[in-house]
Design a protein around this nucleic acid. Structure first.
Lengths: 347, 347
DNA sequence: GATTCAATGGGTAACGTTACCCATCAAATA
DNA sequence: TATTTGATGGGTAACGTTACCCATTGAATC
């Protein structure tokens, strides 16, 4: 049996009888609705405090709101997600809303189940981070519940978007490397299971921008892409693949810091020095990038601000806004010691 | 308004009328209860599939179970937590239970609110990872809901525990360093806000074990502890503090890999080499430790197994077990290149 | 052939909260 | 003084699901 407690939980009825009012009055107080005099209100508040009453979300859910917002994260291995969550929590603090996270996983099927689990639990709204689903699918969900999408680029009238200008960010990195004198610049990208339009996915945008900038500088022949994953292992594998090419690249732009960390490991293992033999750059500017022994050149996107904005937009939607909103953060290049001019005489 | 969808959600009543049976029968099918013939059962299942029915957790919550289990994590910055979650998800897969995570934060107050948020949402059980609360407080919660605690050492009849044998693990590290010839071994530990008995907290156990082993080897005078945090920044600060001492330690045992990574950075910044000038060891054997350019000696505790076991114990509790269970994983030393004999002639 | 039994299916009353309405009363207006 | 108004408080019916009971049926037993 799930219920193992003998003593019943305090309900709104207990508070009402303790404060000598109706349950309606108590409900008004906990919802901050009006229709109660200041005197009654404070008497009820006293009763709530005395009995330690807390509303049950399940019962509230049956009548509409649960004051819960659901967050779908692909996984919790990327510290950048932690920044987003911190921003979100900051915005939610004091609003009475509680964030719950579920793991969306690496496949569309798992992600769909995660979203459905949230819908089934009557969350008031949903924030998804870098989802794999198609725009259509997300618009369907958005029809049922307020919906904010992080890190996707498409424009929809049904939901709000918060994203980094990945095009600008990727340009910053590739041009930084070119200014240092690199020509053989390679890229590590992420393999996904998405049914979204490629142009809406951040890793595709980073990869396509890399290719475009290379072409624009007459370096179409130097384009080299390893398609692995945005993870330490993925970066390691991708870098090994790239290093095996001949001639090998003088710089690697990894689409994410996590992959860049793995790339650093592969480079080290190959007996090459960073940045003397090869430059490495990442994306996200996670905490690790700033550590002096890693000193990774990266692109800063303000995850905290993104999380805060996602929270704000979602609450606005919950309050009734129906017009779509979009918010984009401007990326900034943070040059560190992992990038330098290429070795002078390498053929 | 929270409800913006015109079309009503499919309920058990819709399924019932579509399958020409009572709502009771449908309920029996979705709960896998008996009292329905195979024929009726499959007709109902067909109706469920056809209408795309999914039970509403809120309504179920009012009657008892929500098939939801709550997980409280201090934060999501430690990749070790990801291993735990992966193990948990593996166990939950196919059981019909969904895990939801909430952030417990760094203070007791925030943690208490996180636990209450889960209780208010009628989760069927709760798993807390490295909580700060007192045993008393946790036993109170355990009276209300099945409860499993990860990474705490106390023995309680009211809830189950899953933990790593931190004493054995810390012994492994300190003795490994001693065998290499180190005498001036320092430690970086974590500053908490807990009201738990110190002996129940993993970081205290690691620190106390460090001190005990030092004393047992006649090295009481060499004991040096920096109390910061189990984070990159904490490890960096702690290592700087320890390096400033004279004579400086020849080895640092950081209580967690995250802190060890920060310590590596501080050592690097101080112009010292690892392991030639100073050895560094961590704890948790996270993915980063294995990267060849980090090659951090660490202690492996099987987080995946811990998560899986936590899930198993919790479901058993939910099914009715009342006797307390404890599960401890045995730590293993993974020696890598960050530890080596101390420099021969250092005074 | 009468009785018992197990299997199957359904009726109904909760669970805790809130939206919607109505009742009351005192103050303000005509 | 009679009427209107606004503020305050309460009654009640849902919301979707399940636990508990009872009714019916056909088979098995005496």
């Amino acid at each position: 049996m799930a219920t193992q407690n003998p003593r019943r939980r305090v309900t709104i009825a207990d508070v009402a009888s303790h404060a000598q009012v109706s349950t309606t009055a108590v409900s008004k107080v906990i919802r901050n609705a009006d229709g109660v005099s200041p005197v009654t209100r404070s008497r009820i508040q006293a009763a709530i405090a005395e009995l330690g009453y807390r509303p049950q979300a399940a019962a509230r859910g049956m009548r509409g709101r649960t004051f819960t917002i659901g967050v779908v994260l692909p996984h919790i291995r990327n510290p950048f997600f932690a920044d987003i969550l911190d921003g979100l929590h900051e915005h939610l603090d004091g609003t009475g809303y509680q964030a719950i996270m579920v793991q969306g996983g690496a496949t569309r099927k798992a992600e769909k189940q995660a979203v459905e689990a949230l819908l089934d639990r009557q969350v008031d709204g949903i924030i998804t981070v870098a989802p794999l689903a198609s725009k259509n699918r997300m618009e369907e969900v958005a029809k049922e519940r307020p919906f904010v999408v992080l890190a996707r680029h498409e424009r929809s009238a049904a939901y709000d978007s918060v994203f980094d200008d990945d095009q600008a960010g990727a340009e910053l990195v590739v041009e930084h490397l070119m200014e240092l004198g690199h020509r053989r610049i390679a890229h590590i990208t992420h393999q996904d299971n998405a049914i979204a339009r490629p142009a809406d996915l951040l890793h595709i945008i980073r990869a396509e921008t890399y290719k475009r900038v290379m072409r624009e500088h007459g370096l179409a022949d130097e384009i080299a892409v390893a398609t692995t994953f945005y993870s330490e292992q993925g970066g390691y594998d991708g870098a090994r693949e790239l290093l095996a090419r001949s001639p090998r690249p003088t710089a690697i732009f990894a689409g994410a810091d996590q992959a860049a960390i793995g790339a650093l490991a592969a480079v080290h293992e190959a007996g090459l020095r960073v940045p003397e033999d090869i430059s490495i750059a990442g994306y996200d500017n996670t905490l690790l990038a700033a550590l002096p022994n890693i000193a990774l050149t990266s692109v800063d996107q303000d995850g905290f601000a993104m999380g805060r904005m996602a929270g704000r937009l979602l609450l606005e939607r919950i309050e009734g806004r129906t017009a779509a909103a979009r918010f984009s953060v401007g990326p900034k290049l943070v040059a560190r010691r992992s990038t330098a001019p290429p070795p002078s005489a390498t053929s």
